[in-house]
């Protein structure tokens, strides 16, 4: 994933990027937008054009940023001008994490605070319900607290369950699942059977990228 030659398939193709780079040079309005406020920032871009591979990279980032957060454009261009291209790439890499990292981190927290993996991993056959019940309280208490700390949840639908509601045309089928006697076109009238859950905010603790997220819980040694 750190390989700078890997190209995002969704990104503009080579010619499109070259055209963008040329546009930067010849379209004064766009150039000002990207490089404001100092016009003296222009020469380095010219120099970069001499190294086509790097131009690709830079223009790609700049264009992405312009769409989302114009304020940051200044900063990135300044960086490119004053420092090396590699620096920018490094910065991007640092923010990239394996997609499973968040999931592993959450598992790690639920294990740490509520022993969830121990519980799920345990064979329940042969254990008495009372024993399981006692342990479940522990798991429940710990996981509940952890969840409340790191994830802000609210129901998808705010009406109390059991309320009769009307589902209008154009409803979000991802956030609302129909069941029962579904036919024809909305509006539908029905009872809210489950209010759903929505994560309003996920705020896991900060953790540096080099930490091996696959260690969900360290082994413990009681030193004598």
């Amino acid at each position: 994933m750190t390989d700078p030659t890997v190209v995002d398939p969704a990104a503009p193709g080579f010619f499109a990027r070259l055209a963008l780079a040329l546009r930067v040079l010849f379209d004064a309005v766009l150039a000002r937008k990207l490089l404001l406020p100092e016009p003296r920032a222009l020469p380095p871009v010219e120099r970069i054009v001499e190294k086509p591979v790097e131009v690709e990279k830079i223009v790609e980032r700049v264009v992405e940023k312009v769409v989302e957060k114009p304020v940051e454009v200044e900063k990135i261009v300044e960086r490119v001008v004053e420092k090396t291209v590699e620096k920018v790439v490094e910065k991007v890499v640092e923010k990239t994490r394996p997609p499973e990292e968040g999931a592993l981190h959450l598992l790690s927290i639920l294990q740490r605070d509520g022993r969830l993996l121990d519980f799920l991993g345990e064979e329940l056959t042969g254990l008495k319900d009372a024993e399981i019940g006692a342990a479940v309280r522990l798991v429940h208490q710990g996981c509940k607290k952890a969840l409340a700390t790191y994830v802000v949840l609210k129901p998808v639908h705010t009406e109390p369950e059991g309320t009769v509601i009307v589902v209008d045309k154009g409803f979000d089928a991802h956030a609302l699942r129909l069941a029962g006697n579904v036919k024809g076109e909305p509006p539908y009238k029905g009872t809210l059977a489950h209010a759903g859950w929505r994560a309003v905010e996920v705020k896991l603790p900060e953790r540096p990228a080099f930490v091996d997220a696959r260690v969900i819980a360290p082994a413990e040694v009681e030193v004598r």
Partner: peptide, 18 residues
């Protein structure tokens, strides 16, 4: 209320004292 001393190892229930 049930108070539980969980198992220290990965056997949460098997090693627990309630």
């Amino acid at each position: 209320q049930t108070v539980v001393i969980p198992g220290r190892g990965s056997k949460l229930i098997g090693g627990s004292i309630a």
